[in-house]
Write a protein that binds this DNA or RNA. Structure first.
Lengths: 157, 157
DNA sequence: TTGATAAATAGGAATGATTACTAAAAAGGA
DNA sequence: TCCTTTTTAGTAATCATTCCTATTTATCAA
């Protein structure tokens, strides 16, 4: 989870990517974050160090890194793209209140087999489970609005 | 899966929604589709019957139906929202080539339990598994570009 | 070290899905 | 039938993302 600048340079080179200060900074910001930031989040984070940085460059960089397989996009809606540099198999828990995304690395989720009822020429290459619900604070604020439902319920789809 | 106009009217009323011809047509188009259409798809489909229909109305209607819980949004990227009126527990298979979305109703996927490592005050209300890969035709076109990888591989995240 | 070449950067403009605003029309209830 | 509220349709606005392009930079070979 922690990379030196040299590691990152190596990683970029290994993918045939040039290693530039901006690119390194953007990637490092993403690697060190567990918040699944947006392009704009990363822009804001790197801007103090590179005041000439363009948001455009952030988008371009994320595109390049995604193509190279160093970064993945996480979808929680159709608002803004959020990014993740965690390449180990994992899944996501999304709070429907505050849009927080948590990583979940539960080995039992990594053993799902191809679902039944698929066309047999369909080749599955990956899968991801998205759990949705409400984090503690958001449950509080929901409860103060409507006085209902705090008991444990079975998970449904 | 097949609803009469009366059924739909009942359903709308039950949710406190007015039943209008446009709304009914939009919902019906969605219910009868398995293609997870976009707002624009639905607009195009209903337009011949209601030439004065506004795309705006389609968005508004989908928003209302989603709030009422009659419709869900499916995310496959950050391009356009796609919609689904299938309320029974199911999951999705997404072709990375042509963006087709297939419904998967495999009972074994409906028995996942809450993942380990969650904050204990987080309440999961739903989850969905998204399988990604390539459908038959898209595998063909991939293969004609790069001559590689057609054997069966284990699924990874 | 230098020069050549291809990629990366920054800036502004463009795109395109979605939302906001608003007046007119329609639905549902009294 | 009348009233109230929602819905509709049209136009304009928003906002994330992409496109275009000139300049700069990284990398590689000589």
């Amino acid at each position: 989870m922690n990379f030196s600048l040299d590691d990152i340079q190596q990683k970029f080179r290994g993918c045939g990517l040039k290693s530039t200060p901006q690119r390194t900074a953007i990637y490092q910001a993403l690697v060190h974050s567990t918040a699944h930031p947006t392009a704009e989040d990363l822009f804001a984070q790197v801007l103090p160090t590179y005041p000439m940085l363009s948001l455009n460059t952030v988008y371009y960089t994320l595109g390049v890194l995604r193509t190279a397989g160093l970064v993945q996009e996480v979808n929680i809606g159709h608002d803004r793209a959020r990014f993740d540099a965690n390449l180990s198999p994992h899944h996501h828990v999304i709070c429907l209140g505050c849009q927080t995304i948590l990583d979940v690395m539960d080995p039992k989720l990594n053993r799902l087999t191809s679902p039944s009822g698929l066309p047999k020429d369909f080749e599955i290459t990956q899968y991801q489970v998205a759990f949705r619900g409400y984090c503690g604070p958001c449950r509080q604020s929901k409860a103060s609005n409507t006085a209902s439902s705090s008991g444990k319920r079975p998970i449904s789809q």
